[in-house]
Computed example of a mutant assay.
Amino acid sequence: MTLTDPVQVLSALIRCPSVTPLEGGALATLESLISPLGFEVERVTFRDPDTPDVDNLYARLGGGGPHLMFAGHTDVVPPGDTAAWSRGPFSADIADGMMYGRGAVDMKGGIACFVAALARHVEAHGAPAGSVSLLITGDEEGPAINGTEKLLAHAAAKGERWDAAIVGEPTNPDAMGDMIKIGRRGSLSGTVTVQGVQGHVAYPHLADNPLRSLIAMTAALLDPPLDSGNERFPPTNLEITSIDTGNTATNVIPARATAQFNVRFSDIWDGDSLGAEIRARLDAAATASALRPGRGAAHYEIEFRERPSPSFLTRDQALIDSLSAAVASVTGRTPELSTTGGTSDARFIKSHCPVVEFGLVGKTMHMVDECVALDDLEILTRIYQAFLQGWFHRAGAN
């Protein structure tokens, strides 16, 4: 295999069926590829009650500073109905200039391009004038408990320190060079349960319909808007994702009703302040609902179902400028600096060093027939090459 060719590297990775939380041979393959470049590789398995064991990889090339981390994941989401795929989801077939397979863009493709870029750099210039580490998890598409966060803590406890990081997630909406992620919105999910009194719909005075209160409460969560955003973040957005009573009868008032919601929030909020605002809105709506006159305040409970993912914004100009310049030099485009999209493992890395994200075009991620253009693999490899040279220069490496 030629390490400088991202197509060959990606092909080897896609053929590993590493569906979360299975390693599937992907980390073993990656270890075999990067070891000849001089990386010292450590494989670590983390465990936690009620969650699957997860295999992870940490590798470092060089012993001095400045120290750049490349972070990513080899785990992939399930392929779904394999019969719906035009080619095997783990075949890495190539047709019409495209490589097909689960993980092609999310995000084995990003890993393959970084490995190829580093191999080209070493071939042309020798090892970088500093250190490069790879922090690769098998738990990004899963609960993210036994992956990046624990691997960062493990490496930090052994004395590892990083000056900057790049995450190879697919960031470009339509074409290479569209977008660099310089931050991420936070995420908070919850469930509201309203208790009522079950009864016959013909005798509503003997019952208490919880949906009357829940409708008013969900409306209060949606309006007015939580904020209007700012120069770096779009407006905070709350979505009601389900309303349920478990009731299959049309002539029965249900005993309880639940609503689930998710909020993607700007840096105007943190988990505590946003939770307090949500409770305040629910309290007001539970007391003042016009849909249940004379009933008094509704009884409700709220459960925030997971620890909130914090919002963050990277302000390290040397990192941002190095990557922007690399993108422009290869594509001729000025990338948008964005905080849109979902969460990523960058939310863990930001506590250790400045972090940005840049990878492939994400149009087909998690879809049937996930695929990547071979031309895009070459473009991303060249961008990473230019970034490596530019960042180490800006960071003051000798």
Rank of each mutant, 00 (worst) to 15 (best):
D321C: 11
L360Q: 01
A346D: 01
F358Q: 04
E301Q: 13
M367K: 14
R347V: 06
G359Q: 05
S324K: 11
S311E: 02
K363L: 12
A288P: 00
H352T: 08
G275R: 08
S322F: 10
V361I: 11
R295M: 10
E357D: 01
S311P: 13
L313M: 04
G332S: 11
G359P: 09
A328V: 04
D272A: 14
A285Q: 00
P293H: 06
G275L: 02
R281S: 00
R281G: 01
I278N: 09
S311A: 15
R292W: 02
S344G: 01
E301M: 01
E277C: 10
L282R: 00
L319H: 08
R307C: 03
S344D: 00
G294V: 13
A328C: 14
A328P: 10
R281P: 00
H366P: 09
T339P: 10
G341M: 04
P293Y: 04
A284S: 14
S309N: 08
L291Y: 03
C353F: 09
I268Y: 05
E303W: 00
P335G: 11
E301F: 00
D283H: 08
D316R: 05
S273T: 09
M365W: 03
W269Y: 15
G359S: 07
S351R: 10
G275I: 05
E357V: 03
Q317C: 04
P354H: 10
R279M: 07
P335K: 09
M365D: 01
D321F: 11
T314K: 04
A280L: 10
E357F: 05
V356S: 00
A328N: 15
G271C: 02
P335I: 05
C353I: 06
D267L: 11
A326D: 04
M365V: 13
D272S: 10
G362P: 05
A373C: 11
A288S: 10
C371H: 15
E301Y: 01
D267G: 07
E277T: 12
Y300S: 03
L282D: 00
I302R: 01
E306Y: 06
S309H: 02
E336N: 04
M367E: 13
V361A: 04
D267N: 15
A284Q: 15
R281F: 01
V361R: 00
G341S: 05
A290G: 11
F348S: 07
G296D: 12
A325Q: 14
L274Y: 12
T287N: 08
F304H: 09
T339G: 11
E277F: 01
A285N: 00
H299S: 15
S289P: 09
V372L: 01
A346N: 02
G359F: 02
T340F: 08
K363A: 15
E306N: 07
S351D: 14
T334R: 15
C371W: 03
C353A: 14
E306H: 08
V327L: 13
A284T: 14
G296C: 13
A328G: 10
G359V: 06
S266E: 06
E357A: 03
P308M: 09
P354V: 14
L323P: 03
V355W: 03
S266C: 10
G294I: 13
P308C: 09
A373M: 06
A297H: 06
M365R: 05
V356I: 12
R279G: 02
T343C: 07
V356F: 02
